[in-house]
Design a protein around this nucleic acid. Structure first.
Length: 611
RNA sequence: GCCCGAGUAGCUCAGGGGUAGAGCAUUCCCGUGGUAAGGGAAAGGCCGGGGGUUCAAUUCCCCCCUCGGGCUCCA
């Protein structure tokens, strides 16, 4: 089936959904009902509606109502053998939808765009109303049929073109009218729809499968992190295993970028608000800061590191010979995110950034951006995530409609956007330009990956900033002895360690490569007689920097091996008489049934190969 | 923050207006075993917190907290 046809089916089903809802809630106000990637939805205002059969009580719509609506949809579908277009004038449309403010607003938009207004009747072919009948009756319900304001895109004959088992209603959600939180919240009913019932079932099975990879589930099962009600929501606590992973990640990044002369810096986690008043963050983000009261003065927890880092730059006179200066720091920032936004490690209130700020001349900016892209490429390639269908790149620029949200002059912005674009093109990054996604101080390149359920997660980022150096009056002396303002580049490779972990846990389904696994190798002594040999080995490897463990013979060997599998430990070695007598170790990789027998003093070399 | 839903043992879950249930994990005992669950016993609970209805609430109602699916936001 073509994509178009499937979209038409989905959109047609949105009409059918709306009609079926009106069967039970005749006063519900319909708004918009488009097709989406996995089906369709319709946004409906139930506020003033009473249930048709329920006697006027205040009604809200919940998951429990989906079943009966779905049943009605399937019943009506059999009689819906046509879609018919009815052209009306703007004033006729206004009259027809007089009691629906949402449709009236849409009609205003159609009029403003100079387009013609069309209604669509869907239902039994033998009851298609004439335009006059329709306007006379003034009701969107026409027998078993239904009339909606719509620009088209339906199947010709729903009864014949749509398999009643190929769709189902999925969930109820809230959604603001026109996506604006200042507007009223409507009830959104989501439906799933595919070209056949088999595809619908397959989608649902895949979704169930993906839930098994959910980092929140795996994080608990593998003992990587936890939350405590006493500590608070959005504040993850990392266990020794989770911390081992964090260390492995930051070490990998620092290994990759060691070729580029970064210098580590360290800053306090609080500051006077004055710092952010000067940077411009105060105005925009003061509501989302955590405030800390001292004896005499008030501080805020840092929500980002750039302003602090500018003060390290500003502490000395800088010459063009010093540039570029590259400061990096793995450090936690704190943001009072809206409670409804928090989600496992993907969105938290204590955020560890692998943050870096580069101060350079305008000429050096291109080379620096290029170099950062190289690091990002190398890092994500090492994780097998640098694949076309695994991520996309956003060139995040200003929204031309809201210039007031950005600081700095137009020319600088154009320059910055052009610079990012130029280098990214040279690096063969295919980017989507996304208006309105820029930071208030400059444009960015954002690297967007996906979680198990295909939700987008922004990880790596490169941000060009001409604004903050100016606001903080940062300077360097050029070769002519003149004072110049440096360019600042903000960059993060993992982005937030928490969010990064959420993505890779799901990417690997917890089955991490050797270098990343929280426990890399486990020794299993066959009996207590073999424990000493195992413990000595483990001690040696630990001091060589490997994460190894010994699991004593308290349980059967079979059981211990099974436990290693559920814990997804990448390698193990059974230690028995054979090994002790021959002074060897047989290491087994969990994947691929690979067994490698090595002399005892060669174990570390073998592990180095895998790292 | 907003809409809908959910919170029962460390974990996964069953139950239901009248003394709280299972499996796994934990602890102890037995077993000393060569590649995906050895056997036995014990312990473990303000049924998320607070209020209300009731002779009686883990169960019904309200508020709060936490979690999930969306919306909005994301320096």
């Amino acid at each position: 089936m073509s994509e178009d046809k499937l979209q038409h089916i989905r959109h047609s089903l949105a009409h059918l959904l709306a009609r079926s809802v009106l069967e039970y809630y005749p006063d519900a106000k319909l708004t918009l009902g488009p097709a989406v990637d996995t089906g369709f939805y319709y946004d409906i205002d139930f506020a003033s509606s009473a249930k048709a059969s329920g006697g006027g009580e205040e009604s809200s719509f919940s998951d429990n109502d989906l079943k009966k609506i779905q049943k009605t949809m399937r019943k009506l579908l059999g009689s819906w053998n046509t879609f018919a277009r009815v052209e009306v004038s703007v004033s006729e449309a206004r009259k027809f939808f007089a009691d629906n403010p949402y449709k009236l607003e849409l009609i205003d938009g159609i009029e403003a765009a100079g387009e013609s207004v069309s209604l669509y009747y869907s239902g039994p072919e033998d009851s298609i109303p004439t335009k006059d009948e329709l306007l006379e009756a003034g009701s969107v319900v026409v027998g078993k049929g239904f009339v909606d304001l719509c620009r088209g895109g339906h199947v010709d004959n729903p009864a014949a073109d749509i398999d009643a088992k190929s769709f189902e209603l999925d969930s109820v959600a809230g959604a603001y009218w026109r996506g604006d939180e200042k507007n009223k919240m409507l009830t959104r009913i989501y439906g799933l729809a595919f070209s056949s019932s088999e595809e619908l079932q397959e989608f649902k099975a895949q979704r169930e499968e993906a839930k098994k990879r959910d980092h929140r589930k795996l994080g608990k099962e593998l003992g990587l992190f936890t939350f405590s009600d006493l500590v608070g929501s959005g504040l993850p606590l990392f266990t020794p295993k989770g911390t081992a992973m964090r260390d492995a990640i930051t070490k990998k990044i620092s290994d990759i970028q060691s070729q580029f002369d970064y210098q580590r810096v360290t800053i306090p986690h609080i500051t006077k608000p004055a710092l952010y008043e000067k940077s411009g963050h105060w105005e925009k983000f003061r509501e989302e800061l955590f405030h800390v009261k001292g004896m005499e003065s008030e501080f805020v927890m840092k929500p980002m590191n750039c302003p602090h880092h500018t003060q390290i730059y500003a502490a000395e006179m800088r010459s063009y010979r010093d540039l570029p200066l590259r400061f990096v720091e793995n450090t936690m920032v704190y943001r009072d995110e809206q409670s409804g936004e928090l989600s496992g490690l993907a969105r938290v209130r204590s955020i560890t950034q692998d943050d870096g700020h580069i101060f350079c001349t305008p000429e050096q900016m291109y080379g620096e951006i290029d170099q950062i892209i190289t690091v990002i490429k190398e890092f994500y390639s090492a994780l097998d995530m640098w694949q076309e269908d695994r991520f996309w790149v956003s060139l995040s620029v200003r929204d031309p409609e809201t210039p007031g949200e950005y600081l700095g002059d137009n020319e600088r912005w154009n320059e910055a956007e052009a610079a990012l674009k130029k280098v990214a093109e040279e690096q063969n990054l295919s980017m989507k330009v996304v208006a309105g996604e820029a930071a208030f101080y400059g444009p960015k390149i954002d690297f967007m990956f996906y979680d198990a359920l295909d939700r987008e997660r922004q990880l790596a980022t490169i941000q060009l900033d001409f604004v903050m150096p100016e606001r903080f009056e940062l300077k360097y002396t050029d070769e002519n002895g003149d004072r110049q303002t440096p360019v600042m580049i903000h960059r993060a490779i993992a982005g937030s360690l928490e969010r990064f972990m959420s993505v890779i846990i799901e990417h690997f389904a917890g089955d991490f490569p050797f270098w990343l696994a929280p426990v890399q190798l486990v020794f299993l002594p066959v009996s207590s007689d073999h424990e000493e040999y195992a413990r000595d080995l483990a001690r040696e490897l630990k001091s060589a920097g490997y994460r190894v463990d010994v699991i004593a013979a308290d349980d059967s060997l079979g059981k211990r091996i099974r436990n290693l599998h559920t814990q997804k430990v990448p390698a193990f070695a059974v230690i028995g008489d054979n090994e002790v007598n021959s002074n060897t170790v047989e290491i087994e990789k969990r994947s691929g049934d690979e067994k490698i027998k090595v002399a005892r003093d060669e174990v570390a070399d073998q592990l180095a190969d895998w790292s």
